[in-house]
Design a protein around this nucleic acid. Structure first.
Length: 218
DNA sequence: ACATTAAGTGATT
DNA sequence: AATCACTTAATGT
């Protein structure tokens, strides 16, 4: 666990230009800090939400799933982001349509729902923040649709790897072809074949359990 | 040495 | 692009 003053430093570091001072104080007072291991499910499909997460460090992947259990990675949440699903869940008292899984070690502050409402009235920066993040999430969802509709599997793999390299801040990823297949809702064999092609084109380089992503045009 | 897991390949749909 | 059936190679116990 983190001490209060350490949390304060972290919070200021990430949000001093986003939130007004009084709001930062309230977040500190009512929010609870948590550090979460990689690959933990923060929120699942059908969950109802009582806390809203505010991302301090690390990253979270947002996954969609169909009735037969096929997963599809939609996009990542990064530092300073929050989950748009929480916003409309808490306001509309609906259940989550998505699953949120930590990609790496992730630090979060959880805000109680009743405070979210209160702050909407009280703080202008909070209103802006909520509206902005709602908007960026929508744009990201549209991006995800474009990607599905207009890119073939080879392009999707490369984009997937590139995005992953961006959010984790490293060119060398530790993951298997089967995991990629799972995130893109494809099959391992297909991924393996296309990976080979990508390597031949110099866009990536890989060994067992390890992939190096090179910059290239998508 | 043996079992398990990751990746490669050809054929078929 | 997906699936099957099978092979090869690396890794863990």
């Amino acid at each position: 666990m983190l001490k209060d003053n350490q949390l304060e430093v972290l919070l200021h570091e990430k949000f001093q230009y986003v939130f007004e001072a009084d709001l930062l104080k309230e977040i500190l007072k009512y929010g609870t800090f948590r550090e979460i291991e990689p690959d933990k499910t923060l929120m699942d499909i059908g969950d109802s939400i009582s806390q809203m997460p505010l991302l301090i460090s690390g990253s979270i992947k947002i996954i969609r799933e169909d009735k037969s259990g096929n997963e599809l990675l939609l996009y990542y949440l990064e530092v300073g982001d929050t989950c748009a699903m929480t916003i409309n869940c808490t306001m509309g008292k609906k259940k989550s349509e998505i699953r949120a899984v930590t990609e790496e070690l992730t630090k979060l502050i959880f805000i109680p729902v009743h405070k979210m409402d209160e702050w909407l009235v009280k703080f202008q920066t909070w209103r802006t923040f909520i509206l902005d993040s709602y908007n960026t999430r929508l744009m990201e969802a549209i991006d995800a649709i474009d990607n599905l509709a207009f890119h073939n599997m080879e392009q999707r793999i490369y984009k997937y790897l590139w995005d992953k390299a961006l959010v984790t801040g490293t060119q060398v990823l530790r993951l298997t072809h089967a995991q990629i297949a799972n995130d893109l809702n494809s099959s391992r064999v297909v991924i393996s074949r296309l990976m080979k092609k990508l390597e031949k084109d110099g866009k990536i380089k890989y060994d067992r359990n390890q992939i190096e992503v090179k910059k290239a045009e998508i």
